[in-house]
């Protein structure tokens, strides 16, 4: 595939992510912050987001597995995940965190466990999509181009 073809599939893929609600306008902000002096900014900050999210999801699994659940701890972890997903613009994960927090405030263990399951699903789904996006970007770069400005 030539550069322009790759660029087109990159735009199509990204547009679909916005249209399907995986990403919101904050992700566009990240794209705007990437330039020649910082060509890997988006991939770098999103990779940090992956590490941070997986740490938080593991911690949440552990806390909710306890006999007596420390809901303050659960709330603090969900709060962090909500904040970082909002900063990246990963909308579905962020929205799921809002529902998660409501169950925390009710000290509803069943509700929290259900939300944790759904947050994990949404998270791994969007992680997969973003990794595909970065792969397309690498192909564009390898072909001698750069991702088009959105």
């Amino acid at each position: 595939m030539d550069v322009s073809q790759l660029q087109r599939s990159w735009v199509e893929f990204l547009t679909a992510l916005f249209n399907e609600g995986f990403l919101d306008s904050q992700f566009n902000q990240l794209l705007q912050l990437q330039d020649e002096s910082n060509p890997n900014f988006v991939a770098e900050v999103v990779t940090d987001f992956f590490h941070d999210s997986e740490r938080l999801l593991n911690e949440l699994t552990g806390v909710l597995d306890q006999q007596i659940v420390d809901f303050k701890k659960v709330d603090s972890h969900v709060h962090q995940l909500k904040g970082s997903s909002a900063s990246i613009g990963v909308e579905r994960v962020k929205n799921m965190c809002i529902a998660f927090k409501a169950f925390c405030e009710e000290s509803n263990r069943e509700g929290c466990l259900r939300c944790l399951h759904q947050v994990k699903q949404e998270y791994f789904l969007v992680k997969d999509k973003l990794q595909t996006l970065f792969m397309l970007e690498q192909q564009i770069v390898a072909a001698g181009g750069s991702p088009p400005l959105m």
């Binding site: 330039d35 900014f41 900050v45 962090q80 904040g83 900063s87």
Partner: peptide, 15 residues
Amino acid sequence: DSIIDRKLIERLLKT
């Protein structure tokens, strides 16, 4: 305290 938000604000300010 968040590494993600630190990187984001740093780029926003530098840009």
